[in-house]
Design a protein around this nucleic acid. Sequence first.
DNA 1: AATTTATTTAGTAATATTTACGCATTGAAA
DNA 2: TTTCAATGCGTAAATATTACTAAATAAATT
Lengths: 257, 257
Amino acid sequence: MVSKEEIIDFIKNGGAHYLNDLSIECIIFGYHDQELKILLGRHSSGDWALPWAYIKKEETLQSAAERILKERTSLENIFLQQFHTFGDSQVRLAGALNTLAPPEIATEFGEDNWLLKRKVSVGYYALIDYTKAEVKAEFPFEEFQWHSISSVPTLIFDHKEMLEKALLTLRNQIHLQPVGSNLLPEKFTLPEIHVLYETILNKTLDRRNFPKKLLSLGVIEKLSEKRKIGQHRSPFLYKFNKEKYGEALEEGMVLAF
Amino acid sequence: MVSKEEIIDFIKNGGAHYLNDLSIECIIFGYHDQELKILLGRHSSGDWALPWAYIKKEETLQSAAERILKERTSLENIFLQQFHTFGDSQVRLAGALNTLAPPEIATEFGEDNWLLKRKVSVGYYALIDYTKAEVKAEFPFEEFQWHSISSVPTLIFDHKEMLEKALLTLRNQIHLQPVGSNLLPEKFTLPEIHVLYETILNKTLDRRNFPKKLLSLGVIEKLSEKRKIGQHRSPFLYKFNKEKYGEALEEGMVLAF
DNA sequence: AATTTATTTAGTAATATTTACGCATTGAAA
DNA sequence: TTTCAATGCGTAAATATTACTAAATAAATT
C-alpha cells in the first residue's frame, strides 16, 4: 500500500533515482489448462497493461527485470530473456504515455517533469510455472490477472505490439532452444507439452510424431508413473533431462516443426 | 569538420537535444575477399570503437540507426536489425564511458553533465555490400576502417561484447532467414556464398551439398554466365531470387546446417 | 603441344529424418 | 456389457541429409 504522499514524492523526485528515458516492460508467460497465458495488470484508470517499471539509476537492466518479476510473482531464478527495445511508436515519442502523469501534472509539477519525458522500453519475456506464481499488485496497478493469449483485453500504450513481438520471438526461438522446462511442472504428460508447442507455434503437430522428436533429442524422458485422467487411458508422465536440456539451450539446436 | 566551439556547445548543451540515458551502437558487417568484415572507427584518443551516436529526443530508434549508417557509409535502405540492448557492464554503469567527456569535464562542465550519465545502448547490426560503401568519419571519430572479424583490434567500452553478441545473433538468425542478399553483389559464385555461410556459422559445410540446399529452397538461381578466375574452371554466377528470398525472410524457414 | 595442377561442376548411394497414418489398449460413463 | 475417446505404439513411404568420387575445365608449366 502506497500513501498519497509517497506517490507525490515519486512524481516530483523520482527523476533523481530512476533513468528518465527508459522503462522496462515484462511479458510474463505461464501455461495452464493447455493454454498459454500472460499476466496483465489493471491501472486505477481501468486500463490493462503489461507489468512495467522504471529502472533505478544504479540498477542493471537484468536486475531491474528480475525485480519486476519478483514483485509481481514472488518468483526468483526464472527464465528471463530480453527480446526487443521499443521506442518508435507515436505513443512513446509523444511522451504522453504515462497514466501516472495525467495532463494536470504539467501544471502541478512542471512541464519538464521526468514522467512527461519520452520513455524507451526494454522488453523482456519470462516463462514461469503458473502453479508457483503468487501474483500481487502494487502502485500503479490495482490488480493483476492471468489472461489467455487468445483473449487479451485492450492494452494501453504499445503493449499490444510488445506482446505480439514477444510471441513472435518465442515462436522463432523455439526452433533454436527447447521450451517447456520453465512453463511445465516437473512431471508432465505428452499432451501437455504437445499442446504447449502447438500453442506457441500456432500450428498443428502430429500427435504421434511430435514425441519422437523430443525423445530423439533426449530433452525429455519417460517415467513409469502415469496420471489418471478419468475415463480414458492414463498417460505416462515425462520429465526434462536437465543435462540434455541444458546442452540444447547452450549449444543451440535447429528444430523444424 | 567540427570546430572546437561546436564541440564545446555539444558537450554543454547537447543534453537538451539528445536522450541522456541512451545511445545507439551499430555493427556494420560487410563481406569482401571471402572474409566477413566490420567497420570500426578510431577516436582521437587512438581507441577503436563501433560506430555509435546519441539519439535525438524526437528521433525514432530506427531512424537514428539509419542516420548513423548513412553518415558512416553513405548508404540508405539497407538491412538493419536491432539485436540487443546493453546496459549492464561495469563500464556502462559507471558512466565513465565517454571519451568525449574525460575527467576534466566534471570540473569544467559540472558533474551532472549529460555526458557523464550512464548510457544504455541499443545495438543494431547492418549487412551491407562492401563495394557500395563510401566510408567517412566525423567527430568524434578521426577515421574508419574495415577489419576482418578474425583480426579485430582492442575495442573500447563493451564493444567487444557487443560485436560477439551481434555475431551470435547473426549466426542464430541464419537458421531462420536466408542471408547474403545484402552482403553479396547482385551476381556471385557458389564459392562466395559458401564461404560467407561458413564464416558466419564458423563451421565447415560440404561444398557439394551446400548449394543443393539453397537451390532446393529456391532462394538462389543459376545463371548461364560464368566468371573467369584464372587458371581454373570458371564457376557459374548465381543471383538471388527476390521473390523466394523475400518469402523466406517474411514467413521464416528453419534450416539446419 | 602435352602435361600438370587445382578449382569447380555434377553427380550417386547410403543413411537419417520426416510425414502420414492405423490399430490396440485403456478406463470411466452410459 | 457396450460405448466413447484419449493415449500408446507402432509401420511404411517420402524426403532430406550426409558422405563422397570422378569429370570438366583453364591457365601455368614443361
